[in-house]
Design a protein around this nucleic acid. Sequence first.
DNA 1: GGTAACATACCAATCGTTAGGTATGTTACA
DNA 2: TGTAACATACCTAACGATTGGTATGTTACC
Lengths: 211, 211
Amino acid sequence: MLPAHEKKRRARDPERTRERLLQAAFREIHRSGFQSASIDAILAATNVTRGALYYHFESKETLGYAVVEEKVAKLTHDRWLRPMRGEGEAIDILIGVVRRIPDSPQDVRAGCPLLLLSQEMSPLDEQFRKRLERIFLDWQEGVATLLRRGKSQGTVRSDLNPNEAARFLIATVEGYATLAKNAQDAKAWKAGIRSIVGWLRSLRPDNYKRG
Amino acid sequence: MLPAHEKKRRARDPERTRERLLQAAFREIHRSGFQSASIDAILAATNVTRGALYYHFESKETLGYAVVEEKVAKLTHDRWLRPMRGEGEAIDILIGVVRRIPDSPQDVRAGCPLLLLSQEMSPLDEQFRKRLERIFLDWQEGVATLLRRGKSQGTVRSDLNPNEAARFLIATVEGYATLAKNAQDAKAWKAGIRSIVGWLRSLRPDNYKRG
DNA sequence: GGTAACATACCAATCGTTAGGTATGTTACA
DNA sequence: TGTAACATACCTAACGATTGGTATGTTACC
């Protein structure tokens, strides 16, 4: 007998259908933005029919909201929040996280979906905006918490304002991501990361030297 | 006799028609992005007809390119390049420029058009991308030139890399603009400006104190 | 058998674009 | 100077394609 995951594909598997739609919608939205994302393109990419899509999602908007909540938020969670909860020195962790952001040409050219959706949708759709804002706030809170821990452990300058520094880090990361996306050049991104790492190092106490 | 500019409006005034189309297109693109910008909306805003629009611009794309070249580039020029050519200490000039970026609720909520178009169009349309990249490069070069001047005058740290610092400034400005746009909150922008100004001050030589 | 999970066919609206015509302005020539 | 010839600057109507959405029908599974 075949292992469970290789069993003959069930004719009906609503969870899988929904997940495939979400994934395809994420890709399409990431490519074209939400407004220009085409339902037809999503259907073509998944071989799901209109009826099935509108069975799982009541409108294009709700599909978009689900993409933000379940796909975009997950990215931030996996790349930032989870690693930041690990052991180690705060600045080291942040440098590691920043360096682990995908830097392949494809990734850099595609850019950050959070950034794209913020620019496009936040003035147009309050429901979108609120969901994106939730992601930014969680991100900021995660960084600030880590910096606070660093301060209490003496590995971060005592005069640093954690919330302010967290915002600064996020702004810089997103700013360089924009420049690199516009340049369509992974080297631009890597140079940005080096600058950010340099700034992160400056958050250590003056008397705190490392190898 | 009436002054020249109040004379009865000429039935045909191609320059004025073109300029009005450009202005309305800029507004519409800034609001909706390029792909979702509606020709109908531009026509309605100007009371210009389809035929007139397609007389002045051969397609929606060329209209978009003209908006980037003649409207978006002008913004960067007026707000950054021109002030940066003035007299004075480099860091003071940069702080002044940054503080003079419009910070009304409407401006912050609308966001930076350069940012929006980069996010939306740079992976999709090389012609767009090149024109946007030109703006970013001019911007960067302007800041770098000013910082170089500051170094030679001893008002900027001698160990500073002008191009790197220029990129850092631009990335930070655009990053905070994104955060503020997503928050739809002018206070977020003003706080960002304060952080940027703080960073700019740190570019002065250690022994260089000011009032 | 009942209903959850689809599939199909179609709708009205909107998209950017163009064809075809008109009105106004300019220029060349008698 | 008058006007024929032409060019510029529009206007109107309609195009075919695509948009998101829905109503109705069918099928697989508990």
